[in-house]
Design a protein around this nucleic acid. Structure first.
Length: 814
RNA sequence: GCCGGGGUGGCGGAAUUGGCAGACGCAGCGGACUUAAAAUCCGCCGGAGAAAUCCUUGUGGGUUCGAGUCCCUCCCCCGGCACCA
């Protein structure tokens, strides 16, 4: 029989055996410490591509490592199964979204199994199944009951021809609908929101979380907290009931420099205050604004423009009457939807004032300012001038003093503003969890009683090519009875944002079949929070934000006793090919299945880890993966070929022992620190070293076998099938994956001899092997006696000697 | 524009955080085996130089006995945010 590594055969064999033996079945009843290792679950796109492998294989390695280290590890998998592509497939190919999705699940599940991960398939979840989305709906009701869900009007991208809402990514760059090329407009619709802003301050805090700095920064910026002052400007127009316009500013110190005011075009006051002669121009501007998407509107490329409303407000501090303009750069949703403009000290206001010939009044004096007109806005620190009794105050103090003064007078108050907006969860789609609400003419908005959940998606909905929401036109779904009065009523036809499903899935894994609640409180108490969460950085603000919000809301409802779902977060990079992102049009898409069927999953796993640091992502290279395959073949030979101890040598034994302990230490540290690429290269070095031992036969049979055993154990998380097969072939007891991770002895890992670098004036000139226990005095004596060193010292004077123990000796000479 | 991360051989990347730059792998070159090729194994492999030696971590400066690593200037690449009042 030929002795060759046949990965395809052995992988199939062991995967079958592990499944039959329930080797990776997870239980809460364990005396080991728990470890919850979660990977972001995949969307059911239909195919498990290399990006999925890159997310899942290395995280499985880490989870396996933890398992061997004695942890009770939960490393589950499931499917994010609601979403637009399924509905598009329904429209295009006439296949029902459920069928389409479940077919994809089946295919992806089969592909996932080829990875050889420790997934416990009894815990699989699929978010589009009624036993899952029932609880997604239940969470909606909970949030509603606790005042965290509300209904409000919000502007959306609307295609008049398709009669539907479009997501931002469905609007083409030229502002038209991707389906029919009709120009998209902004339209106000009644929508459901979650009050995520209630947790704004807490969401900015990441204390106790081991998260990448950039993700924390992104979340911080997303909340966008700014501390400022709300200032009232007097409004006096006959027949307008409002007698003030309030603005938010962080620069209360510049209030004396206000020369105009700008309202958002959507501000409801605009219609009321516009003078008749300005009406046409103002309305035209508002209409123009609506044609722009938010992205275009907020582009800094776009020149700032606006129109005068004809109205004036009074600056109460100095009695100035200033004109009120509207401009699309002022956002209705931020602050009060109105800003005071101080052109002298704000670049944007400066440009606007220049364009429309509005006055520019300096109120903060730069050191040495000579009273001349400004060439550009002065935004740095200075002293207040032209500011009544505040003149001479340093402007930073002025912010506080002016605010205090305004508060005393009742003309304003200090306040905090956030960029973060409430989470809009309504989607005018079929393929999502229906929002469990009923509209009754008599009783108004009535939540579906918990016992009536789930509100199931109707199977007979029609998918029209126009893209209209199928639920809206499905009479059997829409028409219902009011749970309160029993009269005729209509169901909410919007479904929930799919981010809802992923905001709590990590709880469901702990007991996926629990049917008396969304999650099993006991199991959640045992497993949560997640110890290590890995996935792509693209979810930095959306998914991770929403999950944290859910967790905090649940905590405040008393459902759970922790406020953060994920203790450690790690973002892997992206696999590219030929220095470019993979895409069908470029024809550079790497299909993992074809490599698995040639070289095996173990090779693909190891290659993905070796190619680059995980957080960085790597460039797929066919030659590179061949190198890994060669390496695994070398291991195969090393472990299966006959070893002969020709010339046993004590010193070589000590070397082997030391190198083995050093290898165990390095590999353990590298997996712990998630440095898989150097972990693999350490194993390669060890393999190379063992190859030399095998050639020389310089250690005993027993010591050789011990070294191979350690190699296999260290390899087990990375190449689980190969390690299991070789474990079996070297006559060890099944299964290697239940074996304990090797430990190292710090003493035995110590080098006996170490090189001392010899430098002359900081330049490396030589090195000397010395005993590791050498003293400074001994080292100096040995090194200064070296002829080569003596030659350098010829005719020179030693000014200084720097000795770094066990590292280097630097002679500074003159 | 602002925030974050980077820039090291022909390529992917190492460098215990201030102490031998280039581990490991790929590609390349030379050799062994073979009738031959593939596979496998061995050796070489940043640049200049005959050699001693010198140069080399995007650029320019600085700190230090010593800098890929720390500080400042500038250039470039990637990711995020983008008129936030």
């Amino acid at each position: 029989m030929e002795n060759t590594y046949n990965p395809v055969e052995i992988e199939k064999k062991w995967q079958k055996r592990w499944a039959e033996d329930n080797l990776y079945k997870v239980s809460e009843h364990s005396d080991r410490p728990k470890w919850y290792a979660l990977t972001m679950f995949p969307y059911t796109s239909g195919d498990l591509h290399i990006g999925h492998w890159y997310a899942m294989a290395p995280s499985d390695v880490h989870a396996r490592f933890k398992r061997m280290q004695g942890f009770n590890v939960l490393h589950p998998v499931g499917f994010d199964a609601f979403g637009l592509p399924a509905e598009n497939a329904a429209i295009k190919h006439g296949i029902h979204p459920y069928k389409w999705t479940m077919k994809n699940v089946e295919n992806m599940r089969k592909q996932l199994k080829t990875i050889g991960a420790i997934y416990d398939w009894d815990r699989e979840i699929i978010t589009c199944q009624p036993d899952y989305y029932k609880w997604t709906q239940w969470f909606f009701l909970k949030l509603y009951q606790h005042g965290l869900a509300y209904r409000n009007k919000a502007p959306v991208n609307w295609c008049p021809k398709c009669q539907t809402v479009l997501a931002n990514e469905q609007v083409l760059a030229n502002g038209t609908c991707e389906r029919c090329d009709e120009p998209v407009i902004r339209k106000d619709l009644e929508q459901w929101f979650f009050r995520i802003t209630k947790y704004a301050d807490e969401l900015m805090q990441h204390e106790g979380l081991d998260w990448p700095e950039r993700i924390k920064t992104m979340q911080h910026n997303w909340v966008g907290k700014s501390i400022g002052t709300e200032i009232s400007f007097g409004l006096d127009i006959p027949d307008v009931p409002e007698k003030e316009i309030r603005v938010f500013t962080t620069r209360a110190d510049t209030v004396y420099g206000v020369t105009f005011m700008v309202l958002a075009p959507e501000n409801p006051l605009v219609a009321k205050i516009t003078t008749p002669d300005r009406k046409d121009e103002v309305e035209e501007y508002i209409a123009k604004t609506r044609r722009f998407t938010e992205i275009e509107r907020l582009s800094t490329e776009k020149e700032k423009d606006g129109v005068f409303t004809g109205a004036y407000v009074t600056n109460r501090l100095n009695g100035d009457k200033v004109p009120v303009w509207i401009a699309d750069y002022v956002l209705a949703g931020y602050g009060t939807g109105a800003v005071m403009a101080v052109p002298a000290h704000d670049e944007r206001d400066f440009a606007f004032a220049k364009k429309y010939h509005l006055p520019i009044k300096v109120v903060i004096s730069a050191p040495g300012w000579d009273g001349k007109e400004l060439e550009e806005a002065y935004t740095a620190e200075g002293t207040m001038v032209n500011s009544g009794h505040f003149d001479g105050t340093p402007n930073l103090d002025g912010i506080i003093k002016v605010s205090e003064f305004l508060e005393e007078k009742g003309w304003g108050k200090r306040t905090i503003s956030y960029k973060l907006r409430d989470w809009l969860i309504s989607r005018q789609r079929y393929w999502g969890a229906p929002i469990p609400m009923i509209y009754c003419d008599k009783c108004g908005i009535v939540p579906v009683p918990e016992e009536d959940l789930p509100v199931k998606l109707p199977e007979d909905a029609e998918f029209k090519p126009t893209g209209e929401s199928p639920l809206k036109y499905c009479d059997s779904f829409v028409n219902t009875t009011c749970p309160r009065c029993g009269g005729k009523a209509k169901r909410e036809t919007d479904t929930m944002d799919t981010f809802m499903c992923s905001s709590w899935y990590f709880l469901r894994y702990t007991n996926a079949h629990f049917d008396s609640g969304a999650f099993d409180p006991e199991a959640v108490k045992y497993w949560l929070p997640v110890d290590l969460y890995t996935g792509g950085a693209e979810h930095a603000v959306m998914h991770l934000f929403y999950s944290r919000f859910f967790t905090k809301a649940m905590r405040d409802m008393g459902l759970i006793d922790f406020g953060e779902p994920f203790i450690k977060l790690f973002n892997q990079g992206i696999v590219i090919s030929n220095k470019q992102k993979m895409s069908k049009s470029r024809g550079n898409v790497v299909n993992p299945d074809s490599y698995v069927s040639k070289m095996g999953a173990d090779t693909v796993r190891c290659y993905l880890m070796f190619v680059a640091p995980w957080e960085q992502g790597g460039d797929w290279n066919d030659n590179g993966i061949a190198g890994i395959y060669r390496w695994l073949n070398r291991i195969w030979k090393l472990a299966t070929e006959y070893y002969t101890a020709y010339s046993v040598d004590d010193e070589e034994y000590r070397n082997l022992q030391r190198i083995t302990h050093q290898t165990v230490k390095k590999v353990t540290h590298d997996i712990d620190r998630i440095r898989f690429n150097t972990m693999i290269s350490t194993l390669m070095e060890y393999t190379n070293y063992l190859g030399k031992i095998k050639d020389s036969g310089s250690v005993s049979q027993k010591d050789w076998q011990e070294a191979i055993k350690i190699l296999l154990l260290l390899l087990a998380p990375s190449a689980p099938h190969l390690a299991e097969e070789l474990w079996h072939k070297t006559r060890h007891k099944y299964s290697i994956h239940n074996w304990k991770w090797p430990e190292w002895d710090e003493q035995l890992a110590q080098d006996e001899e170490i090189p001392i670098i010899i430098q002359i004036n900081g330049k490396t000139r030589d090195k000397e092997m010395v005993s590791a226990s050498i003293t400074e005095q001994e080292a100096k004596e040995i090194i200064l006696a070296k002829p080569k060193v003596k030659a350098y010292l010829e005719g020179k004077e030693i000014v200084k000697i720097i000795y770094v123990p066990k590292k280097l000796l630097n002679l500074v000479i003159k």
